[in-house]
């Protein structure tokens, strides 16, 4: 094979700047808040029972409940705010994902280095008809990517698209 190595002006290369991120399903916010809600209700119940069993420490348990409510509302605020910053882009040769409200993380994985792809569904996700897509690369979990909150059929489509691209590149 003749080794070709054409020069490319950096300015003309395809740029990440130009892409438009797609959001994941809005139901993802509801799913996350439900998880939080279930956890919250369960802990309030446990604390109530505990305060009935140990009336001497009632004040402590009430304090804990207030703290939990405070912390919970911050989390709810964070879930709402951070949703806008979650985004996915699929291009010809790679998939891009971004997340994070304060500490932002944009990640690109090239299709030709993907090892395998998994779709998973938790109980709550199943209730909302959502799926998570997990993309595995070689060399440990550091460069693996997990995208939560995709519509179930979209996750399957995405998986098929990426797998199709991997096999077409290998030919």
């Amino acid at each position: 094979m003749v080794f070709e190595n054409n020069q490319h002006e950096i300015g003309t290369l395809p740029s990440i700047d130009a892409v438009q991120y797609e959001r994941v399903s809005p139901k993802y916010v509801r799913a996350r808040i439900s998880v939080l809600g279930i956890f919250f209700v369960a802990s309030i119940m446990i604390l109530t029972i505990l305060s009935l069993i140990y009336p001497n420490y009632r004040l402590l348990f009430y304090l804990l409940m207030i703290l939990m409510a405070l912390f919970g509302s911050i989390l709810v605020f964070y879930i709402f705010k951070s949703y806008k910053h979650i985004g996915v882009v699929v291009r010809d040769h790679d998939i891009m994902y971004k997340e994070g409200l304060w500490f932002r993380n944009e990640m690109v994985i090239t299709f030709n280095k993907i090892q395998h792809i998994e779709i998973s569904m938790g109980a709550i996700e199943r209730f909302f008809n959502l799926s998570s897509l997990k993309i595995f690369t070689a060399g440990g979990s550091g460069s693996d990517l997990e995208i939560h909150g995709l519509e179930r059929q979209n996750a399957q489509k995405l998986k098929d698209f990426i797998l199709g691209n991997i096999s077409s590149e290998e030919e």
Partner: peptide, 8 residues
Amino acid sequence: IQAIKLLS
């Protein structure tokens, strides 16, 4: 290279 992360 198999992946790139941009953190801020």
